[in-house]
Computed example of a mutant assay.
Amino acid sequence: MSQFSLRDFRNYQRIDLQLAPGITLFYGSNASGKTSLLEALFYLATTRSPRSRSDHDLVRWDAQGEAGVLPFARVAAEVERRMGRVRLEVLVQRRADEDGQLTNGAQKLVRVDKRPARALDLVGQLRVVLFTPVDLALVDGPPAERRRYIDITLSQLDPRYVRTLAQYQRIVQQRNSMLRAWRERRRPLRGIDDELAYWDQELSQAGGFLLAERLRAINELNQIVGPLFGAISGEPHPLSITYRASIELDAALTAPDLSQRLSAELRRLRQDEVARGQTLIGPHRDDMSFSVAGIDLGRYGSRGQQRSVTLALKLGEAELMRQRSGETPVLLLDDMLSELDTQRRTHLIAAIRRPAQQTVLTATDLGDFGATFLAEISRMRVEGGQVYPG
Protein backbone atom coordinates (compact mmCIF):
# COMPACT_ATOMS: atom_id res chain seq x y z
CA MET A 1 0.00 0.00 0.00
CA SER A 2 1.41 3.39 -0.97
CA GLN A 3 -0.91 6.41 -1.30
CA PHE A 4 -3.60 6.81 1.35
CA SER A 5 -6.11 9.65 1.58
CA LEU A 6 -9.06 10.69 3.72
CA ARG A 7 -11.73 13.31 3.29
CA ASP A 8 -14.17 14.24 6.08
CA PHE A 9 -13.55 10.94 7.85
CA ARG A 10 -14.01 11.14 11.65
CA ASN A 11 -11.99 14.19 12.78
CA TYR A 12 -10.01 14.49 9.52
CA GLN A 13 -11.05 17.15 7.04
CA ARG A 14 -8.55 16.14 4.40
CA ILE A 15 -5.21 14.34 4.41
CA ASP A 16 -3.09 12.75 1.70
CA LEU A 17 -0.27 10.48 2.83
CA GLN A 18 2.49 8.44 1.29
CA LEU A 19 3.00 5.22 3.26
CA ALA A 20 6.48 3.78 2.90
CA PRO A 21 7.19 0.04 2.87
CA GLY A 22 8.07 -1.37 6.25
CA ILE A 23 6.91 0.23 9.48
CA THR A 24 5.09 3.55 9.86
CA LEU A 25 4.41 4.90 13.34
CA PHE A 26 1.70 7.47 14.01
CA TYR A 27 2.14 8.98 17.46
CA GLY A 28 0.34 11.64 19.45
CA SER A 29 -1.86 12.27 22.46
CA ASN A 30 -5.13 10.50 23.11
CA ALA A 31 -8.11 11.61 20.96
CA SER A 32 -5.80 13.15 18.36
CA GLY A 33 -7.03 10.83 15.59
CA LYS A 34 -4.44 8.01 15.54
CA THR A 35 -6.95 5.18 15.87
CA SER A 36 -9.14 6.72 13.17
CA LEU A 37 -6.34 6.18 10.65
CA LEU A 38 -6.28 2.45 11.38
CA GLU A 39 -10.07 2.38 11.37
CA ALA A 40 -10.08 3.91 7.89
CA LEU A 41 -7.66 1.30 6.56
CA PHE A 42 -9.65 -1.53 8.11
CA TYR A 43 -12.84 -0.07 6.65
CA LEU A 44 -11.26 0.12 3.21
CA ALA A 45 -10.25 -3.54 3.47
CA THR A 46 -13.48 -4.97 4.92
CA THR A 47 -16.18 -2.26 4.37
CA ARG A 48 -16.87 -2.48 8.11
CA SER A 49 -15.81 -0.28 10.99
CA PRO A 50 -14.26 -1.99 14.02
CA ARG A 51 -15.58 0.82 16.23
CA SER A 52 -19.08 1.65 15.02
CA ARG A 53 -22.12 -0.20 13.70
CA SER A 54 -23.42 2.89 11.88
CA ASP A 55 -21.64 4.11 8.77
CA HIS A 56 -22.99 7.63 9.23
CA ASP A 57 -20.76 7.97 12.33
CA LEU A 58 -17.74 7.91 10.01
CA VAL A 59 -18.68 11.22 8.35
CA ARG A 60 -17.03 14.18 10.09
CA TRP A 61 -19.67 15.77 12.31
CA ASP A 62 -19.35 19.25 10.76
CA ALA A 63 -18.68 18.16 7.17
CA GLN A 64 -20.30 20.48 4.65
CA GLY A 65 -21.74 19.00 1.50
CA GLU A 66 -21.08 20.67 -1.81
CA ALA A 67 -23.87 22.32 -3.77
CA GLY A 68 -26.61 19.74 -4.17
CA VAL A 69 -24.48 17.03 -2.54
CA LEU A 70 -25.02 15.71 0.98
CA PRO A 71 -22.02 15.44 3.37
CA PHE A 72 -19.83 12.41 2.78
CA ALA A 73 -16.63 10.73 3.92
CA ARG A 74 -14.13 9.18 1.54
CA VAL A 75 -11.29 6.71 2.08
CA ALA A 76 -8.95 5.79 -0.78
CA ALA A 77 -5.63 4.04 -1.25
CA GLU A 78 -3.27 2.67 -3.88
CA VAL A 79 -2.52 -1.00 -3.19
CA GLU A 80 0.35 -2.98 -4.67
CA ARG A 81 -0.66 -6.57 -5.45
CA ARG A 82 1.05 -9.39 -7.32
CA MET A 83 -1.24 -8.74 -10.28
CA GLY A 84 -0.38 -5.04 -10.27
CA ARG A 85 -1.48 -1.81 -8.64
CA VAL A 86 -5.16 -1.29 -7.78
CA ARG A 87 -6.92 1.83 -6.53
CA LEU A 88 -9.60 1.31 -3.89
CA GLU A 89 -12.14 3.88 -2.76
CA VAL A 90 -15.12 3.86 -0.41
CA LEU A 91 -17.48 6.80 -0.05
CA VAL A 92 -20.03 7.04 2.77
CA GLN A 93 -22.73 9.65 2.19
CA ARG A 94 -25.26 10.87 4.74
CA ARG A 95 -28.98 10.59 3.95
CA ALA A 96 -31.64 13.23 4.36
CA ASP A 97 -35.40 13.18 4.85
CA GLU A 98 -38.00 14.85 2.61
CA ASP A 99 -37.36 18.18 4.36
CA GLY A 100 -33.65 18.00 3.68
CA GLN A 101 -32.74 17.24 7.31
CA LEU A 102 -29.90 14.78 7.82
CA THR A 103 -30.93 11.40 9.21
CA ASN A 104 -28.95 8.61 10.86
CA GLY A 105 -28.87 6.74 7.57
CA ALA A 106 -26.01 6.54 5.09
CA GLN A 107 -25.27 4.92 1.76
CA LYS A 108 -21.99 3.30 0.78
CA LEU A 109 -20.43 3.68 -2.66
CA VAL A 110 -17.45 1.57 -3.70
CA ARG A 111 -15.01 2.00 -6.57
CA VAL A 112 -12.22 -0.32 -7.70
CA ASP A 113 -9.84 1.32 -10.19
CA LYS A 114 -12.35 4.20 -10.45
CA ARG A 115 -15.15 1.86 -11.54
CA PRO A 116 -18.30 1.31 -9.46
CA ALA A 117 -18.25 -2.03 -7.63
CA ARG A 118 -20.17 -3.93 -4.99
CA ALA A 119 -18.95 -3.81 -1.41
CA LEU A 120 -18.40 -7.57 -1.52
CA ASP A 121 -16.05 -7.13 -4.50
CA LEU A 122 -13.84 -4.80 -2.46
CA VAL A 123 -13.16 -7.29 0.34
CA GLY A 124 -9.85 -9.06 -0.20
CA GLN A 125 -8.33 -6.41 -2.47
CA LEU A 126 -6.45 -5.01 0.54
CA ARG A 127 -5.76 -7.58 3.25
CA VAL A 128 -5.20 -6.33 6.78
CA VAL A 129 -4.87 -7.73 10.29
CA LEU A 130 -6.04 -5.31 12.99
CA PHE A 131 -4.78 -5.68 16.56
CA THR A 132 -6.26 -3.39 19.24
CA PRO A 133 -6.38 -3.49 23.05
CA VAL A 134 -10.01 -4.64 22.74
CA ASP A 135 -8.78 -7.82 21.04
CA LEU A 136 -7.19 -8.93 24.29
CA ALA A 137 -10.71 -10.03 25.27
CA LEU A 138 -10.92 -12.31 22.23
CA VAL A 139 -10.15 -15.37 24.36
CA ASP A 140 -12.64 -14.85 27.21
CA GLY A 141 -15.16 -12.56 25.52
CA PRO A 142 -18.50 -13.48 23.91
CA PRO A 143 -18.65 -16.10 21.11
CA ALA A 144 -19.62 -13.43 18.57
CA GLU A 145 -16.10 -11.96 18.82
CA ARG A 146 -14.49 -15.28 17.94
CA ARG A 147 -16.88 -15.87 15.04
CA ARG A 148 -16.09 -12.37 13.81
CA TYR A 149 -12.36 -13.14 13.96
CA ILE A 150 -12.61 -16.21 11.73
CA ASP A 151 -15.17 -14.62 9.38
CA ILE A 152 -13.06 -11.51 8.76
CA THR A 153 -9.99 -13.65 8.08
CA LEU A 154 -11.73 -15.94 5.59
CA SER A 155 -13.71 -13.14 3.95
CA GLN A 156 -10.46 -11.42 2.99
CA LEU A 157 -9.10 -14.66 1.54
CA ASP A 158 -12.02 -16.09 -0.41
CA PRO A 159 -14.62 -14.08 -2.39
CA ARG A 160 -16.98 -17.07 -2.24
CA TYR A 161 -16.81 -17.08 1.55
CA VAL A 162 -17.76 -13.42 1.94
CA ARG A 163 -20.64 -13.80 -0.54
CA THR A 164 -21.91 -16.97 1.12
CA LEU A 165 -21.62 -15.39 4.57
CA ALA A 166 -23.75 -12.43 3.48
CA GLN A 167 -26.28 -14.83 1.94
CA TYR A 168 -26.35 -17.00 5.07
CA GLN A 169 -26.97 -13.99 7.32
CA ARG A 170 -29.93 -12.93 5.16
CA ILE A 171 -31.35 -16.47 5.27
CA VAL A 172 -31.10 -16.65 9.06
CA GLN A 173 -32.74 -13.24 9.39
CA GLN A 174 -35.64 -14.24 7.13
CA ARG A 175 -36.04 -17.64 8.76
CA ASN A 176 -36.05 -16.12 12.25
CA SER A 177 -38.71 -13.64 11.16
CA MET A 178 -40.92 -16.51 10.00
CA LEU A 179 -40.32 -18.53 13.18
CA ARG A 180 -41.28 -15.55 15.35
CA ALA A 181 -44.45 -15.07 13.32
CA TRP A 182 -45.43 -18.70 13.93
CA ARG A 183 -44.58 -18.47 17.62
CA GLU A 184 -46.74 -15.38 18.00
CA ARG A 185 -49.51 -16.95 15.87
CA ARG A 186 -49.27 -14.19 13.27
CA ARG A 187 -48.96 -16.94 10.65
CA PRO A 188 -51.10 -20.10 10.54
CA LEU A 189 -49.24 -23.25 11.58
CA ARG A 190 -50.84 -25.17 8.75
CA GLY A 191 -48.27 -25.83 6.03
CA ILE A 192 -45.30 -24.82 8.20
CA ASP A 193 -43.18 -27.77 6.99
CA ASP A 194 -43.67 -26.84 3.36
CA GLU A 195 -42.90 -23.16 3.99
CA LEU A 196 -39.70 -23.93 5.90
CA ALA A 197 -38.46 -26.53 3.41
CA TYR A 198 -37.02 -23.91 1.04
CA TRP A 199 -35.31 -21.90 3.78
CA ASP A 200 -33.94 -25.03 5.42
CA GLN A 201 -32.35 -26.09 2.14
CA GLU A 202 -30.84 -22.65 1.56
CA LEU A 203 -29.52 -22.43 5.13
CA SER A 204 -28.08 -25.95 5.00
CA GLN A 205 -26.23 -25.39 1.73
CA ALA A 206 -24.74 -22.03 2.74
CA GLY A 207 -24.07 -23.15 6.31
CA GLY A 208 -22.36 -26.36 5.20
CA PHE A 209 -19.91 -24.41 3.06
CA LEU A 210 -19.15 -21.89 5.83
CA LEU A 211 -18.65 -24.62 8.38
CA ALA A 212 -16.33 -26.62 6.12
CA GLU A 213 -14.19 -23.55 5.44
CA ARG A 214 -14.02 -22.62 9.11
CA LEU A 215 -12.93 -26.15 10.06
CA ARG A 216 -10.28 -26.11 7.35
CA ALA A 217 -8.99 -22.75 8.61
CA ILE A 218 -8.92 -23.90 12.24
CA ASN A 219 -6.88 -26.94 11.21
CA GLU A 220 -4.37 -24.70 9.41
CA LEU A 221 -4.28 -22.18 12.25
CA ASN A 222 -3.50 -24.93 14.75
CA GLN A 223 -0.36 -25.73 12.77
CA ILE A 224 0.67 -22.07 12.89
CA VAL A 225 -0.36 -20.80 16.33
CA GLY A 226 0.50 -23.98 18.25
CA PRO A 227 4.28 -23.46 18.26
CA LEU A 228 3.92 -19.67 17.94
CA PHE A 229 2.18 -19.52 21.31
CA GLY A 230 5.07 -21.37 22.91
CA ALA A 231 7.59 -18.94 21.46
CA ILE A 232 5.58 -15.94 22.71
CA SER A 233 4.71 -17.27 26.17
CA GLY A 234 7.70 -19.48 26.91
CA GLU A 235 5.37 -22.35 27.83
CA PRO A 236 6.38 -25.91 26.84
CA HIS A 237 2.92 -26.96 25.63
CA PRO A 238 1.41 -25.79 22.32
CA LEU A 239 -1.85 -23.91 21.97
CA SER A 240 -4.80 -25.87 20.60
CA ILE A 241 -7.88 -24.31 18.98
CA THR A 242 -11.10 -26.33 19.14
CA TYR A 243 -14.09 -25.50 16.97
CA ARG A 244 -17.32 -25.89 18.95
CA ALA A 245 -20.09 -26.45 16.43
CA SER A 246 -23.79 -26.36 17.23
CA ILE A 247 -24.16 -29.75 15.53
CA GLU A 248 -22.26 -32.97 16.12
CA LEU A 249 -19.17 -33.24 13.92
CA ASP A 250 -17.35 -36.26 12.57
CA ALA A 251 -13.82 -36.26 11.24
CA ALA A 252 -13.20 -35.29 7.61
CA LEU A 253 -16.73 -34.09 6.88
CA THR A 254 -17.08 -32.33 3.53
CA ALA A 255 -19.33 -29.35 2.83
CA PRO A 256 -22.09 -31.61 1.35
CA ASP A 257 -21.84 -33.88 4.41
CA LEU A 258 -22.18 -30.89 6.71
CA SER A 259 -25.12 -29.55 4.72
CA GLN A 260 -26.92 -32.86 5.11
CA ARG A 261 -26.18 -32.90 8.84
CA LEU A 262 -27.53 -29.36 9.22
CA SER A 263 -30.66 -30.24 7.26
CA ALA A 264 -31.37 -33.29 9.44
CA GLU A 265 -30.84 -31.30 12.64
CA LEU A 266 -33.15 -28.52 11.45
CA ARG A 267 -35.92 -31.05 10.92
CA ARG A 268 -35.31 -32.59 14.34
CA LEU A 269 -35.39 -29.21 16.12
CA ARG A 270 -38.37 -27.76 14.25
CA GLN A 271 -40.78 -27.72 17.19
CA ASP A 272 -38.18 -26.19 19.51
CA GLU A 273 -37.33 -23.50 16.97
CA VAL A 274 -40.97 -22.54 16.50
CA ALA A 275 -41.44 -22.42 20.27
CA ARG A 276 -38.40 -20.14 20.68
CA GLY A 277 -38.85 -18.17 17.47
CA GLN A 278 -35.24 -18.49 16.34
CA THR A 279 -32.81 -20.69 14.40
CA LEU A 280 -31.00 -22.78 16.99
CA ILE A 281 -28.18 -24.33 14.98
CA GLY A 282 -25.75 -23.25 12.29
CA PRO A 283 -22.47 -21.32 11.96
CA HIS A 284 -24.08 -18.25 13.58
CA ARG A 285 -24.33 -20.26 16.83
CA ASP A 286 -20.84 -21.80 16.80
CA ASP A 287 -17.85 -20.95 18.96
CA MET A 288 -14.15 -21.68 19.44
CA SER A 289 -12.09 -22.44 22.53
CA PHE A 290 -8.37 -22.25 23.26
CA SER A 291 -6.54 -24.71 25.47
CA VAL A 292 -3.03 -25.61 26.58
CA ALA A 293 -2.35 -29.06 28.05
CA GLY A 294 -6.12 -29.60 28.23
CA ILE A 295 -6.77 -26.40 30.22
CA ASP A 296 -9.39 -24.03 28.77
CA LEU A 297 -7.63 -20.66 28.79
CA GLY A 298 -10.88 -18.78 28.28
CA ARG A 299 -12.05 -19.97 31.70
CA TYR A 300 -8.89 -20.70 33.64
CA GLY A 301 -6.07 -18.92 31.84
CA SER A 302 -4.10 -16.10 33.41
CA ARG A 303 -4.18 -12.64 31.84
CA GLY A 304 -0.66 -13.26 30.58
CA GLN A 305 -1.70 -16.51 28.89
CA GLN A 306 -4.74 -14.87 27.33
CA ARG A 307 -2.60 -12.05 25.97
CA SER A 308 -0.24 -14.63 24.47
CA VAL A 309 -3.17 -16.43 22.84
CA THR A 310 -4.48 -13.20 21.33
CA LEU A 311 -1.08 -12.22 19.99
CA ALA A 312 -0.56 -15.71 18.55
CA LEU A 313 -4.01 -15.61 16.92
CA LYS A 314 -3.39 -12.27 15.24
CA LEU A 315 0.07 -13.19 13.99
CA GLY A 316 -1.32 -16.56 12.95
CA GLU A 317 -4.07 -14.81 11.00
CA ALA A 318 -1.43 -12.85 9.12
CA GLU A 319 0.58 -15.99 8.37
CA LEU A 320 -2.50 -17.87 7.18
CA MET A 321 -3.25 -15.03 4.76
CA ARG A 322 0.33 -15.12 3.50
CA GLN A 323 0.30 -18.89 3.01
CA ARG A 324 -3.06 -18.96 1.26
CA SER A 325 -2.66 -15.89 -0.98
CA GLY A 326 1.09 -15.50 -1.41
CA GLU A 327 0.69 -11.86 -0.30
CA THR A 328 1.62 -10.42 3.08
CA PRO A 329 -1.25 -8.52 4.76
CA VAL A 330 -0.78 -5.09 6.28
CA LEU A 331 -0.56 -5.22 10.08
CA LEU A 332 -2.51 -2.52 11.90
CA LEU A 333 -1.43 -2.23 15.54
CA ASP A 334 -3.30 0.24 17.73
CA ASP A 335 -1.21 1.23 20.77
CA MET A 336 -0.32 -2.40 21.37
CA LEU A 337 3.20 -2.18 22.76
CA SER A 338 1.98 -0.38 25.88
CA GLU A 339 -0.39 -3.31 26.50
CA LEU A 340 2.30 -6.01 26.38
CA ASP A 341 5.10 -7.01 28.73
CA THR A 342 8.73 -7.04 27.62
CA GLN A 343 8.73 -10.64 26.32
CA ARG A 344 5.56 -10.28 24.21
CA ARG A 345 6.61 -6.84 23.01
CA THR A 346 9.95 -8.23 21.82
CA HIS A 347 8.21 -10.99 19.88
CA LEU A 348 5.77 -8.57 18.27
CA ILE A 349 8.54 -6.21 17.18
CA ALA A 350 10.44 -9.16 15.68
CA ALA A 351 7.31 -10.11 13.72
CA ILE A 352 6.79 -6.65 12.24
CA ARG A 353 10.46 -6.37 11.27
CA ARG A 354 10.19 -9.27 8.82
CA PRO A 355 11.02 -8.55 5.17
CA ALA A 356 8.09 -7.46 3.00
CA GLN A 357 5.94 -6.82 6.09
CA GLN A 358 4.15 -3.47 5.97
CA THR A 359 2.96 -2.34 9.39
CA VAL A 360 1.08 0.74 10.54
CA LEU A 361 1.12 1.27 14.29
CA THR A 362 0.07 3.95 16.75
CA ALA A 363 1.43 5.04 20.10
CA THR A 364 1.08 7.90 22.55
CA ASP A 365 4.66 7.78 23.81
CA LEU A 366 7.84 7.29 21.80
CA GLY A 367 9.42 6.07 25.02
CA ASP A 368 7.82 2.68 24.37
CA PHE A 369 10.39 2.15 21.61
CA GLY A 370 14.15 1.88 21.55
CA ALA A 371 16.35 4.35 19.70
CA THR A 372 17.45 1.72 17.16
CA PHE A 373 13.86 0.83 16.31
CA LEU A 374 12.85 4.50 15.93
CA ALA A 375 15.79 5.13 13.60
CA GLU A 376 14.67 2.31 11.27
CA ILE A 377 11.04 3.34 10.78
CA SER A 378 8.95 6.17 9.34
CA ARG A 379 7.35 8.44 11.95
CA MET A 380 4.41 10.82 11.71
CA ARG A 381 2.99 13.02 14.45
CA VAL A 382 -0.79 13.28 14.78
CA GLU A 383 -2.35 16.34 16.36
CA GLY A 384 -5.92 17.61 16.13
CA GLY A 385 -6.83 15.80 12.94
CA GLN A 386 -3.58 16.76 11.19
CA VAL A 387 -0.56 14.60 10.36
CA TYR A 388 2.97 15.99 10.34
CA PRO A 389 6.27 14.36 9.30
CA GLY A 390 8.58 13.12 12.07
Rank of each mutant, 00 (worst) to 15 (best):
A275D: 13
V128Q: 07
V309F: 07
S289R: 15
L249K: 12
Q3C: 14
V123Q: 03
R51K: 15
E195F: 00
L249P: 14
Q386K: 14
D55T: 09
P329R: 09
T254G: 14
V92H: 02
S36D: 05
S155I: 04
V75K: 04
V309I: 14
R175T: 01
I152V: 10
Q93E: 13
P238F: 04
L17I: 05
R95I: 00
L6Q: 05
D193Y: 03
L130C: 10
D113L: 03
L211A: 07
R148I: 08
D193M: 03
D16G: 15
R115T: 06
L138Q: 14
A119E: 14
L211F: 00
N222D: 06
R147H: 10
E145W: 14
L122T: 07
S289N: 11
E317H: 06
D335S: 05
A144L: 07
Q173M: 02
R354A: 13
V69S: 11
Q173D: 04
A20D: 14
E220W: 04
K114Y: 08
D135C: 11
Y243E: 06
Q305Y: 06
S54L: 15
G298K: 08
F131L: 15
V134K: 08
T359K: 13
T242D: 13
A181G: 00
D151M: 01
A206R: 14
R53K: 12
L262G: 04
A144Q: 15
M178G: 01
L280C: 07
A275H: 06
L126V: 08
